[in-house]
Design a protein around this nucleic acid. Structure first.
Lengths: 319, 319
DNA sequence: TTGTAGGCGTTATCAA
DNA sequence: TTGATAACGCCTACAA
C-alpha cells in the first residue's frame, strides 16, 4: 500500500507538505496541493488508520456494544445513531460478546455506547478513564459516564391509569428479568398507577423478555379459572409469545383478556390481533444519543441526552 | 493511560523485556515475567491497539459490512460469525453506510465480509489488495475475493417441483429487486421447475423484498378475478406483507391462495397463518463464513466456504 | 510556503 | 536471559 512517503516522493515534496495538503491545511500553495492530491489519487493513497490514531490519540470511531445482534430494537437505535454520527465524520462500530471487552480495553473507540448488561459497572467506570461512556438502560454514575434511559416509570404509569379509566380492574403484570432496570422502572410505574387508584395488583408473572417465556405464561394463563382482564407485559416480545399462546388456546383478545406490551417492535404489527404497545421511537433515541456524543467529543461539556418520544399504539386490543 | 514504558520502568526492566513478557515469549526468566505481569496488572496496563497494529500490520478485527442494521437475517449471520471468530481471537466489528467505506479504506480490518450492494464491485476489488474480501449474495471474482451464496437456484427449484407435485398449477412469482443476485437465483430455480414440468408461469409480480411492497401486491391480487393458486415470494418479508393484505381482504390462505416465502425469518412464525418458507440456517452460515476466514488468515489458502443448510418449513399453508 | 526532525506505543532485530 | 535501537506511518512544532 502506498504511504504518505510515496506520495511525497512522487510529488517531489517533503512528507510534511504532503501531510498538510492531504489534511486540507491552508499553509500550502494551491499548485502544490493540487499536485499532491493528484498523485495521492494516482497512487490510491489512503491514510493508515493505526498510524494516524497513534499520533492523534483519536480513532474517529464510536463503539456500540450490545448483548446480541438479534435484539429487535438495536436495529432502530443503530440506524438513528449511525446516520447522525456519519454526518459528523464519526464511524460507528458495533460489537458484541468478548470482542467488546477487547475493543474497549484497547481503546479502539473515542466513545462507547453500552447496551449490554454483561459488562460490569466496575469495568465500565474504568473505561471511562479513557473515553466517555454512555450507558443505556442502566443506573450508573461516575466521572465521564453518562446515562440515558427511557422514562419507563412515567410512561407506563400514564398508560396503566388510562386502562383503569377504561374500566379494567383485574390487571396483571408479566415482568422482564428482575435485574433489568427497564423492567424495574416499568413495574414501578405499573404499581404507582395501581396505588394511585387503589387498585389491587391482580397477579404477577415472572418473565424474562423472551417470546418463548411469554408463550409459556400465555399457556399457563389460558388454563386459569380466574383470569386477569388485562395483562401488561414488560416488553413486546413477551406479549407476542402470550398472544401466540392465547390464539392457540382460543383465548379471545381483547374481549376476554386485553394484552399490551412495550417497545413498539415491528413484529407487533403482524400479530393477530395487532399488539397494543407503548411504542418508543428508538431511531429518534439513537439520533439523540449520537448528537450528544458528537457535541461531547467536540468539547461541549454541558450537553444533555434527550428523552426518546413514546406513543401508545392502540390496536385492536382495547375494550 | 499506562504504556509499556511505565510497566518496564516500574518493573525495573527494559521495554523489550517487558514486551516479551507481555506477549508470552519464552525467552524471559520466570521471576522476571511474573514481576512484569504483576506490575502490568497494578498499572492496569493494556496494549495500545493503534501502536500494535501499526507495527504488526494486523488489527485482529474482521469487518462485517451491511446495508442496514435492521435487516432480519443479519442478526443470525452475525451471531454465528461472532461466536466462531471470538473463539479464534478475532473481533468482529459491524458497520453500515458511509462508515463502511472509511473503515475499509483505512484498513481497520484484517478481512471483510460484505453484504451491502452499495459497495461497488470495482471498489471491493481494490480493497482486496489489502485484505481478503468475502462477498455474500454477489457474483464477484478476483484475486483475494471469495464469495458465498445460498444455493438459491437449486433450493427453490426443488421446492417448486414439490408444490407442483402437490397439485398447484397457477403458480405466480413475487420478485425481489431485479439487481439482487438472490432474487435472480431464486427466479431461475422457479422457472426451471416450471419448465421441467411444462407448467406455465401464471403471473409475475414486481416486488422489492419489503413488507410494504408485499402488502401492496397482496391488496392488488385480492382484487383480481383470476387469482393464482400459489404465490411464491422471493423473500419472507414480501410474503408477510402479502399475508397481511390477504387477511384484511378476506382472502383465505392456503385454501384460496397458498403463499410461501424464503429465509425463515422469525416474523414468519407469528403471522396467521404461519408462513411456509424455505428456511436458511443463517447462523450456521455465519459460522461457516467465520471459520473460512480464520483458516484463511492462518495462512491456509485452499479452504472453502460451506453452504448453509436449507429446510422447508411447511406451516399451515399447504393444500 | 516548504522542509527537518521528533515522537506517538509497539514489536523485533541484533548485540551483549 | 536481557537491553539498545530501529522501524511502522503519520502529524506537527519549529526552523528555514
Amino acid at each position: 500500500m502506498a504511504t504518505i512517503k510515496d506520495v511525497a516522493k512522487k510529488a517531489g515534496v517533503s512528507i510534511s507538505t504532503a501531510s498538510y495538503a492531504l489534511n486540507n491545511q491552508p499553509n500550502v500553495h494551491v499548485k502544490t496541493r493540487e499536485r499532491i492530491l493528484q498523485v495521492a489519487k494516482e497512487l490510491n493513497y489512503y491514510p493508515n488508520a493505526s498510524a494516524r490514531n497513534l499520533k492523534t490519540k483519536k480513532t474517529g470511531n464510536v463503539g456500540f456494544f450490545i448483548y446480541g445482534f438479534d435484539g429487535p430494537i438495536f436495529g432502530d437505535i443503530l440506524e438513528g445513531a449511525n446516520n447522525e454520527l456519519q454526518k459528523e465524520g464519526y464511524n460507528i462500530i458495533v460489537s458484541s460478546g468478548k470482542s467488546s471487552s477487547v475493543i474497549l480495553m484497547e481503546r479502539q473507540v473515542d466513545a462507547a455506547i453500552i447496551f449490554d448488561s454483561n459488562l460490569s459497572d466496575e469495568i465500565l467506570v474504568k473505561y471511562a478513564n479513557s473515553f466517555p461512556v454512555i450507558v443505556l438502560d442502566r443506573d450508573l454514575r461516575g466521572k465521564n459516564v453518562y446515562k440515558s434511559q427511557v422514562d419507563n416509570n412515567e410512561i407506563v404509569k400514564k398508560f396503566i391509569l388510562d386502562m383503569i379509566r377504561d374500566g379494567y380492574r383485574k390487571i396483571a403484570y408479566l415482568s422482564g428479568p428482575q435485574n433489568s432496570p427497564s423492567n424495574t422502572g416499568r413495574y414501578k410505574g405499573f404499581k404507582e398507577a395501581l396505588n394511585q387508584t387503589k387498585t389491587e395488583e391482580f397477579k404477577f408473572y415472572d418473565g424474562d423478555f423472551t417470546i418463548s417465556r411469554g408463550y409459556e405464561i400465555g399457556k399457563q394463563i389460558a388454563k386459569e379459572v380466574n383470569k386477569p382482564d388485562f395483562l401488561f407485559c414488560a416488553n413486546d416480545e413477551s406479549a407476542v409469545g402470550v398472544l401466540q399462546a392465547f390464539k392457540e388456546e382460543g383465548v379471545n383478545v381483547p374481549s376476554e383478556i386485553a394484552v399490551a406490551g412495550f417497545d413498539g417492535i415491528m413484529l407487533g404489527d403482524f400479530t393477530i390481533p395487532k399488539l397494543t404497545t407503548i411504542a418508543i421511537d428508538y431511531r429518534e433515541w439513537g439520533m439523540q444519543i449520537a448528537s450528544f456524543i458528537t457535541s461531547l467529543l467536540e468539547g461541549n461539556n454541558d450537553c444533555q441526552i434527550g428523552q426518546p418520544p413514546a406513543i401508545v399504539k392502540f390496536k385492536e386490543t382495547t375494550k
